[in-house]
Design a protein around this nucleic acid. Structure first.
Length: 854
RNA sequence: GCCCCCGUGGCGGAAUUGGUAGACGCGCCAGACUCAAAAUCUGGUGGCCUUUGGGCCGUGUCUGUUCGAGUCAGACCGGGGGCACCA
C-alpha cells in the first residue's frame, strides 16, 4: 500500500473547496448563523506557528459548526497599517504599500496551504482605501456625536526623529531608535471619548460568561472604578475652593497637607510669576517618561506658601504643595494628604516634616499609645481624633462624613474611573488619515463625506525624520471646505487599534457603500466565538467593545457586545539553544550527539539547552510552518497543534511531537486502506440484531461521538484527540473478518467524520475512497444513539478505610444493598477488615463502596 | 507594592458536583518481523519493598475538614501573568 501523499492530496482538496465555493457564507439561509473569527494577522511577511495554532483552533470550530447544521461565517483579512511598514521603507527603501501588499500575497498563499475553511470572498486589508475611507466616515460620525474631540495632551517626543513615540517605544527615557532622551511635549491630539462608556463597559463584563475570567478581571482593573468623594477646601485669599478627590473621606480629620498636580490649572497660574515653580514643573514632567524612574522616584513637593482650610472641624490651616506623585488625569488633579492612612502621603509627610495624626485605630491597639511609624495603616478600624466620627467603624464613618459634607455643601460622593480617553493621533504616514482640515478662520473643519476617502499620497519620501505627510510638498495644502481660503490637512493618522476596532463588523458586508450594512451586521453579529492571543486582553477588546456601543448609538447596528464567546490561546514555545559563544542557534542547526550533548551543525561549536520560550526571531528558536507543511503536510501540522497541549496553555513544539502526529495521520490512512476490501462486502443496511462484539464496537463509536463533540465545544481539543486515538486503536484491533460488518462500516465512517474538522484533507480523501460522491465538508456531524452510550457492566471501587482493596464488575443498575453484599463478599476486602468491627458502610451507587472499621 | 492564575511520572497532559490518581500521546525498555536497518506490530513502563499473594508511599510543603482530598479551607514555598505614584 502506498504511503499517504499529503502534498498532492491536500492541494487537490484545497482546489475543490475553492472551486465549489464551499465556505462562502450567505445570509438568508434557514439554518442558524454562527460567526467564528480569529484575530486577523498583521502582514509582517510570513506566517508563524502562532498563526497556525490560532487559525487551526478556529477552523476546527468552523468545520464542526458547519457539520452541526449552522450557517457559518469564517472570514479573513489583514491588519494592514502599522509602523513596521514604515521601518521597512526607511531601511530597505521599499514603499510601505508595496511591502504590505507583497507580504499579504505571501501570507495568503501560506494560509491557503493550511486548508482553512475560510470565506476568502470577504477578504480585505485595513490599508485598502475602500476600508479606511469608511473608517474616516465613521470618525466624522463620532465627531458629530461629540465622541471625537481635540485637546492638548502630553506626549513622548523624540527630538531627533521629530515624532511622537508610544510608551513602549521609550526605553530608559530614550527613543528606541534614535537613542536620544525623550521630551515631554504638549500637542493638540485627537481623542475618542471612551470614558463616556466606562460604566457600561465595566458593568456588562459581569454578564459576559463566555469570556475568560482572567480577561474580564484585567478589563475590570483597567477601567478601575473607585467610589469616593469630591471635597472642597477653601483657599486663603481666594473665592474658588480647591477640589480634591478621595476614596477615604473618613480620614479627613487626619489631613496634614494638600497637593496639586504639576499640570493643575492652579499650578500653571502660580507658575506664571514663579520661576522656581516652573523649574519644579519641568522636573516632574521629565519623570513621566521613564517607568523605571517612577518606580524609584522620591516623593517630591514644592510648597506654594498658600494655605487651605480643612472643611471639617475648626477649619484647620493646611499647607498647599505641588507634588510629583499627583496626576492631573485622575480624579480632581489634587489631593489631600492623610499620612497616617496612606503610604505615599506618609513618605511625603516625613520628608517635609509634616504632622501625622492617627485617625483610624486598628483592632486590638490602645489609643493612648498608638502611633504611626514608617508604615501607614490603611485597613479598617475605629475612628479616633475625628470629632463627630470618633468611635465609629471606618465603614460607618465613610457614610457619616459624606452625609455631613453634602449637607454642608463642601463635598459630594463621586465615582471615578482610571480609564482615560483614547488618544488616537499618530504622527505617521502608514495609517488612516484623519479627515479634517485646519483653517485659520474656521478652526478644524471636517472633510465633507462626499470627498472621502482622504487617500494617502503615494509619492512620499522616508529619507528625513518626521511624518512624511507633514513634509509632502502638495498633499496637505487644500482649500477650507467652510470658507474656501487656503488651509491645511490634518497630517496625523489614526492609531491602528482603530482599524481593528470594527473590522469584524465590516466582514459582514465587506463591499457595502456605508461602513456597516445594518441588515448584514444584525444577521451575523455578535461574533459567537472570537479567538486570539491574551496580549489583546485589554486594549483591542476594549476598543472593539467601545466601537460596537457607539455603532449602536449611531444606529448602524443593534448589538451591544461584539464578542459573545472569547477564547485566548496559548503561545507556541520551543526549546532555546545557545552555542559556546552565547549566540542563539536555530533548532534546525542543532544536532544531538550520541552522548546526549548538542553541537551546531554549521560551525561544530557545542550548544547548550535553555528554557522553552515563545518562538521568536530574537531567540532564534523558530520553526517555519512552510517547512513543516512541506515535509509532513497541513493535516499533520494541524493535528499536532491540537493534540497534547490544551488550547489555552502554551504549546511546546518538539520534533518528536510533530513526528508522532505524522505517524497518526499515516495510521488512519492505513486503517482505512486496509479496511477497504472488507468494506466492499459489508452490508449497507442496518441489521436488526447485533453480536456482542458489534455492540461493544457501536458503544465505543457512540461514546466517541458524544465525547468528541463535548470536548470540541469546550475547547478541550487535546481530550478529543485522546478519544480519537482510543477509537483508532479500537478499530485497528478488529480482525479482517469482523470488518465485514455494518457496525464496522459505521464505526469507520464515524471516525472519518469526527476527524473532518481536524485533518480535513485526509478525511475528505478517505471519504471519497469509501464511495461518497458528495463532500465530507458538506456532510452532517454523526448523531449519538443513546442506547449505545451505556456499558453492560461498570467497575466499582471497593475501599476499606478509604484505601482501595478490590474492584467489582457489576451491572450499572445494581442497588445499594446489592453493592454492599458484593463488597463484603470480596476476599480482599475481608482480608483488609481482618477481625476489626465494621462501623459503617458508605455506598455510592455507580462509584464506590467504602467500609469503615474500628 | 497591589491583583490574578498555575504547581500531578522522564516529558506534554487526563481525572463530572470530593469517590479506583496518572486516560491519551511522547520518550524509554523488552519482544516479533528483517541478513540488517527503517517502518510496522505486541507487551511493559510513578517510586520503594516483596516470600510474586501482595504491601507501603505518592498530585510543591505543612496543617485542617471528611468515611474518603489532586479536587474544599488556612498558612507557607516555587513559577507565570496583569497593573503600577490611580489619592
Amino acid at each position: 500500500m502506498a504511503r499517504y501523499n499529503a502534498k498532492t492530496v491536500e492541494k487537490k482538496w484545497q482546489k475543490i473547496w475553492a472551486e465549489r465555493k464551499v465556505f462562502e457564507a450567505n445570509m438568508g439561509d434557514k439554518k442558524p448563523k454562527y460567526y467564528i473569527l480569529e484575530m486577523f494577522p498583521y502582514p509582517s511577511g510570513r506566517i508563524h506557528m502562532g498563526h497556525v495554532r490560532n487559525y487551526t483552533l478556529g477552523d476546527v470550530i468552523a468545520r464542526y459548526k458547519r457539520a452541526k447544521g449552522f450557517n457559518v461565517l469564517h472570514p479573513m483579512g489583514w491588519d494592514g497599517f502599522g509602523l513596521p511598514a514604515e521601518n521597512a521603507a526607511f531601511q530597505k527603501k521599499i514603499h510601505p504599500a508595496k511591502w504590505t501588499h507583497e507580504n499579504i500575497a505571501a501570507m495568503r498563499d501560506q494560509l491557503k496551504k493550511i486548508g482553512l475553511a475560510l470565506d476568502w470572498s470577504r477578504e480585505f486589508a485595513t490599508c485598502d482605501p475602500e476600508y479606511y475611507g469608511q473608517q474616516q466616515a465613521l470618525f466624522l460620525d463620532f465627531y458629530e456625536n461629540g465622541l471625537a474631540y481635540r485637546k492638548e495632551a502630553w506626549v513622548n517626543w523624540d527630538p531627533e526623529e521629530n515624532t511622537v513615540l508610544a510608551n513602549e517605544q521609550v526605553i530608559n527615557g530614550r527613543g528606541w531608535r534614535s537613542g536620544v532622551p525623550v521630551e515631554r511635549r504638549k500637542l493638540a491630539q485627537w481623542f475618542l471619548k471612551i470614558t463616556d462608556y466606562s460604566e457600561e463597559l465595566l458593568d456588562t463584563l459581569a454578564k459576559m460568561d463566555r469570556w475568560p475570567d482572567k480577561v474580564r478581571l484585567m478589563q475590570e482593573n483597567w477601567i478601575g472604578r473607585s467610589k469616593g468623594a469630591r471635597v472642597n477646601f477653601q483657599i486663603d485669599g481666594r473665592d474658588q475652593p480647591l477640589e480634591v478627590f478621595t476614596t477615604r473621606p473618613d480620614t479627613l480629620f487626619g489631613a496634614s497637607f494638600c497637593a496639586l498636580s504639576a499640570d493643575h490649572p492652579l499650578t500653571e497660574e502660580l507658575a506664571k510669576d514663579n520661576s522656581e515653580l516652573r523649574a519644579f514643573q519641568e522636573k516632574c514632567r521629565k519623570l513621566g517618561t521613564s517607568a523605571e524612574a517612577i518606580e524609584t522616584a522620591e516623593k517630591l513637593g514644592f510648597d506654594t506658601g498658600i494655605k487651605v482650610r480643612l472643611p471639617v472641624g475648626d477649619g484647620r490651616e493646611l499647607p498647599l504643595y505641588v507634588a510629583n506623585f499627583v496626576l492631573m488625569e485622575y480624579g480632581a488633579g489634587a489631593i489631600f494628604g492623610c499620612p497616617s492612612a496612606d503610604q505615599r502621603d506618609l513618605d511625603f509627610a516625613r520628608k517635609y516634616k509634616l504632622s501625622t495624626p492617627a485617625v483610624v485605630l486598628p483592632e486590638g491597639e490602645d489609643e493612648a499609645v498608638f502611633e504611626i511609624g514608617t508604615e501607614a495603616y490603611t485597613g479598617p478600624g475605629t475612628m479616633i481624633n475625628s470629632e463627630f466620627l470618633n468611635g465609629l467603624s471606618t465603614d460607618e464613618a465613610l457614610k457619616r462624613i459624606i452625609e455631613h459634607l453634602e449637607s454642608a455643601g463642601t463635598g459630594k460622593s463621586e465615582v471615578v474611573y482610571r480609564l482615560r480617553d483614547w488618544g488616537v493621533s499618530r504622527q505617521r504616514y502608514w495609517g488612516c488619515p484623519i479627515p479634517f482640515i485646519h483653517c485659520e478662520t474656521c478652526g478644524h473643519v471636517p472633510v465633507p463625506k462626499s470627498d472621502l476617502p482622504v487617500k494617502l499620497p503615494e509619492d512620499v519620501a522616508f529619507d528625513k525624520p518626521g511624518n512624511p505627510l507633514d513634509h509632502h510638498p502638495t498633499w496637505k495644502h487644500v482649500k477650507c471646505p467652510g470658507c474656501g481660503e487656503d488651509a491645511v490637512r490634518e497630517t496625523d493618522t489614526l492609531d491602528t487599534f482603530v482599524d481593528s476596532a470594527w473590522y469584524f463588523a465590516r466582514f459582514t458586508a465587506p463591499n457595502a457603500k456605508d461602513p456597516i450594512e445594518k441588515s448584514a451586521a444584525n444577521y451575523w453579529l455578535p461574533i459567537d466565538q472570537y479567538i486570539g492571543g491574551i496580549e489583546h486582553a485589554i486594549l483591542h477588546l476594549l476598543y472593539a467593545r467601545f466601537f460596537t456601543r457607539v455603532l449602536k448609538k449611531l444606529g448602524q447596528l443593534d448589538v451591544d457586545e461584539p464578542f459573545t464567546g472569547l477564547f485566548t490561546q496559548g503561545m507556541v514555545n520551543h526549546m532555546t539553544y545557545q552555542d559556546s559563544e552565547g549566540v542563539w542557534v536555530l533548532p534546525d542547526n542543532v544536532k544531538t550527539k550520541k552522548d546526549g550533548t548538542f553541537v551546531r551543525i554549521d560551525t561544530g561549536l557545542s550548544v547548550t539547552e535553555g528554557r522553552y520560550e515563545k518562538m521568536s526571531k530574537s531567540k532564534n528558536n523558530v520553526v517555519d510552518p512552510d517547512d513543516i507543511i512541506e515535509q509532513f503536510g497541513a493535516d499533520t501540522a494541524r493535528w499536532f497543534m491540537i493534540s497534547d497541549s490544551p488550547p489555552g496553555r502554551d504549546l511546546l513544539w518538539t520534533d518528536a511531537g510533530i513526528e508522532g502526529a505524522w505517524r497518526f495521520v499515516q495510521k488512519v490512512w492505513r486503517l482505512a486502506n486496509d479496511s477497504l476490501p472488507a468494506l466492499v462486502s459489508a452490508p449497507t443496511t442496518r441489521p436488526d440484531r447485533f453480536s456482542k462484539e458489534e455492540i461493544k464496537l457501536l458503544t465505543l463509536t457512540h461514546k466517541t461521538i458524544a465525547g468528541v463533540s463535548k470536548d470540541i465545544e469546550a475547547f478541550h481539543y487535546n481530550k478529543a484527540v485522546a478519544r480519537l486515538y482510543e477509537f483508532v486503536n479500537g478499530l485497528s484491533g478488529i480482525d479482517e473478518k469482523s470488518r465485514k460488518s455494518w457496525a464496522f462500516r459505521q464505526a469507520l465512517l464515524t471516525l472519518i467524520r469526527l476527524l473532518g474538522p481536524m485533518m480535513p484533507h485526509l478525511a475528505e480523501e478517505i471519504w471519497q475512497k469509501l464511495g461518497h460522491k458528495t463532500l465530507l465538508a458538506d456532510a452532517p456531524w454523526p448523531e449519538v444513539e443513546k442506547e449505545f452510550l451505556s456499558d453492560e457492566t461498570i467497575t466499582i471501587a471497593l475501599q476499606v478505610m478509604g484505601k482501595l482493596r478490590d474492584t467489582l464488575e457489576i451491572p450499572p443498575n445494581t442497588d445499594k444493598s446489592g453493592l454492599e453484599k458484593k463488597a463484603l463478599a470480596s476476599e480482599k476486602v475481608q482480608r483488609a477488615i481482618g477481625d476489626k468491627e465494621i462501623k459503617k458502610v458508605i455506598v455510592v451507587p455507580g462509584k464506590i463502596v467504602n467500609i469503615v472499621i474500628g
